[in-house]
Amino acid sequence: MSGMVEKRGRGYWLTHAGLIGGVLVIFFPIYLAFVASTVSQPEIVRPPMPLIPGGHFFENYREALVSGINAPVARMLFNSTVMALGIALGKIVISILSAFAIVYFRFPFRQTFFWLIFLTLMLPVEVRIVPTYEVAANFGLLNSYPGLILPLIASATATFLFRQFFLTVPDELAEAARVDGAGPMRFFIDILLPMSRTNIAALFVILFIYGWNQYLWPLLITTDPQMNTIVMGIKQMFPSGDDIANWPVIMATAILAMLPPVAVVIFMQKLFIKGLIETEK
């Protein structure tokens, strides 16, 4: 008991002060971006920088969403959503199936395939980006959703995670299902998939954010502003040369770009944490 009381003393307040300080440091630039998205262009460029939200909130956001600078932000948000969902769901489907194959089936070169998949972990997108671009271009995937999604859809990390999870599922469960007459796919759908529910949720959160934050690949594969994703789109909004940047609209876009990943994290937080800590067997 005395230990707990002690903890509630100075240390308790110090940790909280530290945490609150950290949050403020991280939050301040975001707040500045928000303030900038609610004032007018002349107000931003006139020093000192405004620190209190202005009265142009609806005006700026409407302009960003409807007309944007190169393309309407609503369009870019849609593109990003399609890409992030496609990558997250695609990665989950592909990796859970390949993990299923690697763990539950005996086929020639099984271990070789596993190590091949595992090796690709060491090659980030950037390393193979030129050949990947060549292949995607030859398939006519430039400026298309498949072009945005497919090259990023294989995931060694997720395959590895699912493999590790499947290895902890007792063999008797698969055997019981066999005795019950369930074929391999039936076992996968009826038993393995529901058991992986929390793992899938945790992976979805991570992969959605990964997909949403893709910058380099969309920059290469899309040239039509109508196909831009929002993360790269923000950069495209910066004027080249001596043009004046429309900062309020750019900042409004930045704030809008943040919202979907934040929403995903908030709504899936419970499942996400459960997926990382709990094993239900």
């Binding site: 007792p170 008797e172 469960l173 055997e175 019981a176 299902a177 066999r178 005795v179 019950d180 007459g181 009826d190 038993i191 529901p194 058991m195 529910r197 239900e280 067997k281």
Partner: peptide, 17 residues
Amino acid sequence: MERNIAMVFQNYALYPH
């Protein structure tokens, strides 16, 4: 399944979900 047998396992092997 085609053998029409039923098996009881040591660790029960119940489907947890």
